[in-house]
């Protein structure tokens, strides 16, 4: 009997609590914006997109050490990275944040037609080179325009430079082989 009255009372009381919450939200400021007319970033009081927003990725090539973690984390395999190992004495410039680098990143492609914006790559990156930006308006008439090669875009390595380091590495390999065949 006591339980019954308690149950009824709780039913009424929790409904009232819920109604108080919804009436409170009724008079709050809207969080959405009238999108094409107002950009979310322009909304008064917003510094940036919401922290959980998923938008276009950006890779800072000065920070990327070519570890391939992002490509391995990606569930749809839309990141393809090519690296060239550096020969001793000709290491690439260190990371902007100071870390050492042993690999030349000769290609860093993200295919945004495949990307599902899960943000797993940004979590896997050890140096914080790959990040989500606030840019989401980048539709295109040609789907090949959506394959971004960040090496080309940021011009972190010119084609000649890539050819040069590749050749250096090939030579280094040859020398090593020779050394293995005819030891001193």
């Amino acid at each position: 009997m006591k339980d019954y009255f308690k149950n009824v009372w709780l039913g009424v009381w929790t409904a009232l609590i819920g109604m108080r919450i919804t009436i409170d939200h009724l008079f709050r400021k809207n969080v959405t914006v009238q999108y094409p007319n107002v950009h979310p970033k322009d909304k008064a009081g917003w510094m940036d997109m919401p922290s959980n927003a998923r938008n276009r990725l950006y890779v800072d090539m000065d920070e990327c050490n070519g570890c391939n973690s992002c490509a391995r984390a990606c569930p749809v395999n839309c990141i393809s990275i090519e690296t060239v190992r550096s020969v001793p004495g000709d290491a690439p410039p260190p990371l902007a944040s100071g870390g050492k680098r042993n690999l030349w990143v000769s290609q860093f492609e993200i295919d945004f037609t495949k990307c599902c914006f899960c943000s797993l790559c940004t979590e896997a990156c050890p140096t914080g080179a790959i990040v989500m930006t606030t840019e989401f308006e980048y539709s295109s008439y040609n789907r090949y325009d959506l394959v971004y090669n960040f090496v080309k875009l940021q011009n972190s390595m010119s084609d000649e430079k890539i050819a040069e380091v590749k050749e250096k590495w090939a030579e280094h390999q040859k020398e090593k082989k020779k050394e293995a065949v005819e030891p001193k």
């Binding site: 009724l26 400021k29 959405t32």
Partner: peptide, 13 residues
Amino acid sequence: KISAFIQERLGPM
């Protein structure tokens, strides 16, 4: 409109 405002949306505009 009320449903929109309760969910902090704008509703039909």
